[in-house]
Design a binder for these strands. Structure first.
Lengths: 248, 248
DNA sequence: CCAATCGGCTCACTATTTGAACCAGTGTTT
DNA sequence: AAACACTGGTTCAAATAGTGAGCCGATTGG
């Protein structure tokens, strides 16, 4: 494992729930020696990727990350462009809607608009979704080039629930459905009790760059509602794609 | 130089003007060997801190940075970062200085440094300030997007003293002054006998996230002092903004 | 008050990083 | 069309940078 890997792992230990962590804790959770963790933290701090709270001496993510994220966002305004559409879709459907961006072979959740209902699906920003087993993933695969899909399906696929699709045949069917209808549907494929409708967002070259997904408690969804959610998701994804490529 | 340093240096080569860079270029500018640069980029990419554009094979900042920046922003150590600057400003001006954070349509006072003088303005932490009628509020509006401002000005505005500005025209003038000079001025708009100078603190996206304000007994203030307080407030607010966004 | 844990530091040992040289591919210039 | 100057990417012996057990003084808490 490279030292850069280790340093990045340290950064990834910080979460919304736990934005400040002490040295010993960091070392323990990253599986690193205290001395090593500290040296890495110091190197990160020198570039403002990490900050240390002077009093408690705990560490937190640094302001340099905000700066870098701003540079990225200015050039690649995925979240900025998509967020209003996502919010609109959440209001329209009354369900939780989340936006994911493809990165390093998986979908990274980058934005969430929670349902206003008490009984709702909660999704965290930062969650990494597999391409199989989630509606988002199926929608992404359905929009991908064939060689990408077959390369992904060759690897063994993890089952997350009793309903996760792992067989090449069932997945191919789900992908074919998504390709034909514009949206994908997944019932409890990733988490028990959660029903999802996904749609792919395309970049300027027609290749998928991310997805959006409507997540509902399964008790609220029937075939008719799924179809109308699918239609809404497809429309929203198309709108985002169009805005990203400057066509609207 | 540690490898983490080198990896971070690679990240820092990306700018608003040049958000995508090729391998050879990156290696040259970072003073690294091509092989080294590539290995580091791959390690960064594995953690989504870097992405590679598939077609041109150029590199850009990754989605993981947006994710980490969100975690940081959610936890925003606004008070901790701002407090030392606020204290410094209070010592420099000899007046009470308070820090407010925007939340739910108003400004919430989150930190106060009281003047050492016997005749001083007292402000309590937790006090909710309206966007009109206080120097902080005017400064905040002046830094906000136009639609936010007009949406706020559409509602009827409460008068707190005989001097409170409630007319759209007078408010627009005050906002224009603040936008032009960097600071706002309010005389007895919220409380009799209190003169305030406000300045907005900006987040990473350039939008205002809060304000600071210098509050003096009106008897102590003349135009010349107001101007010098305004200059100091502007400087302090800029410093806080810069520290929050990692540019200082 | 003692024990446990904290953040931080040192240094002999060793595993990771390094970079010159070498591909294959793509435009440019002669 | 041939030579050229780039590009991104790869290899492997040599060298350098990273590692971690153990120690330290300072806090913390039972």
């Amino acid at each position: 494992m490279s030292t850069v890997d280790k340093a990045a792992s340290l950064l990834e230990l910080f979460t919304l729930r736990e934005p400040e962590i002490g040295l010993s804790d960091l070392a323990r959770r990253a599986g690193l020696d205290k001395a090593t963790a500290r040296r890495l933290l110091m190197a990160l701090a020198a570039h403002r990727l990490i900050e240390q709270e002077p009093h408690s001496r705990r560490y937190r993510l640094g302001a340099g990350l905000s700066r870098l994220a701003r540079i990225r966002d200015a050039h690649f305004p995925f979240v900025r462009v998509a967020a209003p559409v996502i919010r609109e879709l959440a209001l329209e459907t009354g369900e939780t809607v989340h936006l994911s961006e493809f990165s390093a072979g998986a979908l990274l959740t980058v934005h969430v608009e929670l349902s206003a209902k008490a009984n709702r699906v909660n999704v965290d920003v930062g969650q990494v979704l597999p391409l199989h087993g989630t509606a988002s993933g199926i929608a992404f695969l359905a929009a991908s080039r064939l060689e990408v899909v077959s390369a992904y399906l060759e690897k063994p696929l993890q089952a997350f629930t009793a309903h996760t699709m792992t067989g090449p045949d069932t997945l191919a069917k789900a992908i074919a459905f998504a390709a034909a209808s514009g949206y994908s549907r997944s019932s409890q494929g990733y988490e028990e009790g959660v029903h999802s409708i996904g749609a792919a967002i395309l970049g300027a070259d027609g290749q998928p760059i991310g997805t959006l997904s409507i997540a509902s408690p399964i008790s609220r969804v029937d075939d008719q509602l799924a179809a109308s959610q699918g239609e809404a998701a497809t429309r929203a994804a198309r709108l985002i794609s169009a805005r990203l490529t400057g066509e609207a």
